[in-house]
Amino acid sequence: MKAEYVNPFYIAACDVFELMLSLHPKRSSLKAVEELINTKEASVVLGVTGDLKGIVIFSFPKEMALEMVKIMSGIEMEEIDGFVSSALGEIGNIISGNALTLLSKNNYKCDITPPQILVGKYKTFSAPNEKSLLLSLSTEIGEFDISMLLKEK
């Protein structure tokens, strides 16, 4: 997959984190990986359809996920319950929606499917012969990943 698809997600993530959480993500690494693996406890999985097809996964460590929802709600969170996972789903949705708006400026017209939230460390998706991109972003409250496998139709 092309690296140019990554930047809109990076820009959108920085923008949404700054607006909603007052956090400032920094790119800590970008690598090509054989499989889409979520190594962190809370993952938001979104499908992309249209000119680009594929999947985007946001993966957050547990403590970071709880802290993000605390920043927004002002309430201490103890576990990844329905409220925390729905809130993460909304964040993933907003970031992806904004990223697709940026991509549409490069003439890629895409839609996203509703977020699915996975709690726990899974080895979820693999695509034979396809390399995925794994972008790790560090913030003041922890590091999270955006994994992407997007192809032009």
Binding site: L19, M72, F83, S86
Partner: peptide
């Protein structure tokens, strides 16, 4: 149900913050 009310609460919170901020 608890699950639906939590989903609603999360949508409301994130929508409100994003809408006010933007």
């Amino acid at each position: 149900s608890e699950e639906l009310v939590q989903q609603f609460g999360a949508k409301l919170m994130t929508w409100l913050i994003m809408h006010v901020c933007k």
